[in-house]
Design a protein around this nucleic acid. Structure first.
Lengths: 150, 150
DNA sequence: GAATATAGTTCAGCCCGCTTAACTAAAAAG
DNA sequence: CTTTTTAGTTAAGCGGGCTGAACTATATTC
């Protein structure tokens, strides 16, 4: 089993990066009193915009009951809004409230700050190189997601 | 507030990559019946090798009691081994059992497979570029971790 | 329009993680 | 050697996530 240099590099980067960001996110979620499931729903709404409750159910592979209860708590806490879908009055649409959006943005900014710290000491040439490479990766990753994503 | 091209690229990449890997990991953990806290401990042990129970306590910011109970469950399930520290017989050292190590490796291999799929269609020139960039990032990320890490 | 299917809510009950508190045992301090 | 500190275990109790089941309300099918 041969490993290309790129595979090696990807794996090394994944190890370091994943470990670090996981820690950051869990710490951030915890610091606010939100549970991980609750926090994950906020992240999903951030990523997807408006979601049906049934999308949440499918995405996290939980029962409708569980999704409903989690959503209710987030509504109570003021992080999300829940509205009837006009086109199907049985369905509910969820989206981040201003408070929820602001909250998630803070978390993202924290991650960004870490990354900015990471690269600020690179030379201009290195920065250019890295930026180009990441753009390539992001482009193809988005493309893959388009086919697989829920 | 000016944003360098690199900052932009890092942020875009982080969004896509984090979202995707989180989903992969939680799905993997869930598929095995392990809770996220239990799974996180296995990941920590994979990352760190042998850990004291007190390291777990500090890393996840939980009480010693909680750490002890989680460890006990993982020992019962056969994922980790717990031994007395010869140099301080009050302390316990935790490490992955063969079963635990194999299990985590499977999860990592799944992530790797995703990444390999991601890059397999890049040209040789692009692959080289991306590999170089990731190596640069990995190197500095490790360096930062050395100072901040627990 | 009656029968059926679908989207959510609510509730009882279970399991789990977590904390506090009481405890054991070993190490460190005096 | 006694006191105090440190590492971990154990048990009781709380709160949260999850499921299954019973229910409401809307949409779909025939």
């Amino acid at each position: 089993m041969t490993q290309s240099p790129l595979s090696q590099s990807l794996r090394a980067w994944m190890d370091v990066f994943m470990h670090r960001s996981m820690r950051g996110w869990t710490h951030f979620a915890k610091s606010t009193g939100l549970s991980m499931p609750q926090f994950s729903i906020l992240m999903q709404l951030h990523h997807r915009g408006v979601c049906g409750l049934s999308d949440i159910r499918a995405r996290f592979d939980i029962t409708t009951a569980a999704a409903s209860q989690l959503a209710e708590k987030l509504v109570q806490a003021g992080y999300i809004e829940r509205h009837e879908d006009p086109s199907d009055r049985r369905a509910k649409k969820l989206k981040l409230s201003p408070k929820g959006a602001k909250f998630i943005q803070q978390g993202i900014n924290q991650r960004h700050r870490w990354m900015d710290d990471l690269v600020k000491n690179l030379s201009a040439a290195q920065q250019k190189k890295v930026a180009e490479a990441l753009d390539i990766l992001t482009e193809i990753a988005k493309d893959v997601d388009r086919h697989v994503d829920m």
